[in-house]
Amino acid sequence: MQFDDKWVYTDKLKEHFMHPKNILMDATDYKYDGSGIVGNIKCGDQMLMFIQVDKEKQTITDCKWKTYGCASAIASTSILSEMVKGMKLEDAHKISPKDITKELGGLPEHKIHCSVLGDKALRAAIDDYYAKHGMKEKIKREQSKIVCQCMNVTDEEIEHAVLEGARTFYELQEKTKIGTVCGQCKGEAESLLNKYVKEHFGN
């Protein structure tokens, strides 16, 4: 019987998994202008990103990374590091998980959180650069707080989900995947949910 092996993920993802680009093999001599780390090893994913910036043009000239994670985490960090080279900081800041998964040719739903980490790590690196170079005002939203460490969901995203219609913890989970791993944040998430519901929709 002919075995037409489609592998687990797309060809593009496979290519980046087999030959990841821009890994930072040795950090000792690498001069970077900004770095950011997100994720949690306990949950199986952690990403660390470094960027070099052309200060005149405000563009990313180089991007290096390290990732602890599965194939889609490795591939999405790799592809992201290619995407951002030459990109303006403000454009890179806007890269969404959707942009990354699109570039990869799609990800299975339960793998989306792997690409979520990539864009967050990148934003953290850019914000780090802004912070170190006296451009704190450019950090989009003042230090939103991560509530769910596993899925990297912030208070800001909870607020966003509430504005989009989430009223129960379950609906919040559907929109943000918050608390779907270790569940430790459930209490805090619920009280924030109630707070924002009251704030925006209360009497």
Binding site: V8, Y68, A71, H110, K111
Partner: peptide, 27 residues
């Protein structure tokens, strides 16, 4: 991470399994 180990081994033609969440669909 186990899923990465499993899939790199798979690319070499070696089939094993992993206790990692990432391979199972659950987290």
């Amino acid at each position: 991470e186990g899923e990465a180990i499993l899939l790199y081994l798979d690319l070499e033609g070696v089939a094993v399994s992993t206790g990692s969440a990432c391979a199972s669909g659950s987290l």
